[in-house]
Design a protein around this nucleic acid. Structure first.
Length: 279
DNA sequence: TTCCAGGTGCATA
DNA sequence: TATGCACATGGA
């Protein structure tokens, strides 16, 4: 996929490895808006407007270098899809979500977002996160930035309940007090296993949320988040009728063993097609 | 009305 | 180590 970067834009040529609807709506990210003729993508304190063109896409933003990384434009998804298509169960999911790219999201925002995501549905997750932005975030031009750790630290448990976080309010209140502004960045140097254990030690973060933060925040691909949809997928494709369904930890182990360093990509194709009832 | 959603924390054996 | 249950909330 070719693209050029200007002072306030990125132009993408070709659509086979980049579909903005699939990228934003495949469940990896919650802070975006569909505007009818374009998508607005929000990440931390930055915004991009993505519009389809006859040749591909035009991304308008004041931070083109940031969004070049955010949309993972340097990675060759054609090659990844070619490799993964050799797995029979991935053929349809890859065809269904062939324009997906795994975003490289802001660490802190990813952490908070996926704590909110636990046992929740995507529409409500988006609503809660939007309220967080509007009530605690700094105004940047015509939108609100995702609140910083300091800004979240100023909020009470009651506040988190008021915006609809439910029982996750306690998790949010605690987690912003368990880390400081450098913690998440310092953990970059750890290997996936140690980093995962650090994340799980935080409030509101278990195995699944940790894997999502590893994949969407830290860009680790050797993880396979197992949620209710992946569990359904596993039952459908890996368990015969009479077979007992293994627990999620065992499912995760088996899938990481199978897909190795491409686990993260495989997971997202499968998740998207399962949730869309397209497998 | 009941079930479900990108699960986690905690008690119990 | 493994299993079971409670936990808010809103849409289907």
């Amino acid at each position: 996929m070719n693209y050029v970067i200007g002072k306030d834009y990125i132009e993408i040529f070709g659509k086979e490895d980049f579909d903005i609807k699939e990228i934003l709506e495949c469940g990896q990210v919650f802070s975006y808006k569909f505007m009818g003729d374009c998508y607005l993508a929000y990440s931390a304190d930055k915004k991009a407007k993505v519009t389809e063109t006859s040749l591909g896409y035009i991304i308008k933003t004041n931070h083109p270098n940031y969004f070049e990384n955010y949309f993972d434009l340097k990675t060759d998804y054609g090659k990844i899809k070619e490799t993964l298509s050799k797995f029979p169960i991935l053929k349809k999911p890859i065809d269904f979500g062939k324009g997906i790219r795994i975003l490289k999201q802001n660490l802190f925002e990813t952490l908070i977002s996926f704590i909110v995501s636990a046992n929740n549905n995507i529409k409500r997750i988006q609503m809660i996160l939007e309220r967080l932005r509007e009530k605690l975030g700094s105004k940047v031009g015509d939108f609100y930035a995702f609140p910083t750790r300091e800004q979240l630290k100023g909020a009470s448990v009651e506040f988190f309940k008021e915006i609809g976080a439910g029982y996750r309010a306690d998790y949010l209140y605690k987690v912003v007090r368990q880390i400081d502004d450098n913690t998440l960045n310092e953990w970059q140097k750890l290997d996936t296993k140690d980093l995962r254990n650090k994340l799980i030690s935080l409030s509101g973060i278990g195995p699944k949320v940790a894997d999502c933060v590893l994949l969407f925040g830290y860009g680790r691909q050797d993880v396979f988040p197992v949620d209710t949809w992946i569990e359904k997928m596993y039952v459908k494709f890996y368990c015969s009728n009479s077979q007992i369904v293994p627990n999620r930890e065992k499912i995760r182990e088996n899938l990481v063993k199978e897909f190795g360093n491409l686990s993260g990509y495989a997971q997202q194709y499968l998740f998207y097609s399962m949730r869309s009832r397209e497998v």
